[in-house]
């Protein structure tokens, strides 16, 4: 349980309404000992960044199944930077085609998680990413 005590924000940016993946991961993180905040649907990157900062989370997960992952990651990073919080690690999950993974990493995502991955794998990768510096 090395996610114990980690504060994690799971967010649904934009208009995408498929939330079962975000809910599954929120519950799994809680059961792994983390303190998780789930934003619910239809949140703007501005709002997400504000909550990430105020709640001082260790990780921010963006759950996106609408195809707008490039734009939403970029907007979220901009909002975090504006709040002096560029150090908060961002994870992108959902329907992310393999050919987009590298571009998202290059754009600042710490890891990409897709729905085929097992929960154990996601938790392990998250834990690893949180121990990495920068």
């Amino acid at each position: 349980m090395s996610l114990a005590g980690k504060r994690i924000l799971v967010a649904k940016p934009g208009l995408d309404g498929h939330d079962i993946g975000a809910k599954i991961i929120t519950l799994a993180l809680r059961d792994a000992g983390a303190d998780v905040i789930y934003t619910g649907l239809r949140k703007s990157p501005d709002y997400i960044a504000r909550v990430a900062v105020d709640e001082d989370v260790d990780a921010l997960g963006l759950s996106i199944l609408s195809g707008s992952h490039h734009e939403l990651l970029a907007q979220t990073r901009t909002e975090l930077a504006a709040r002096d919080a560029a150090d908060i690690k961002i994870f992108v999950g959902g329907t992310i085609p393999p050919q987009d993974h590298q571009a998202l990493i290059d754009a600042g995502a710490a890891r990409i998680f897709t729905s085929e991955m097992t929960i154990d794998h996601v938790l392990a990768e998250l834990e690893l990413a949180l121990t990495e510096t920068a």
């Binding site: 905040i37 619910g40 709640e55």
Partner: peptide, 11 residues
């Protein structure tokens, strides 16, 4: 688990 779901109010 010791974990929690926090912050429903923030929504």
């Amino acid at each position: 688990s010791g974990g929690s779901i926090l912050g429903d109010r923030i929504r």
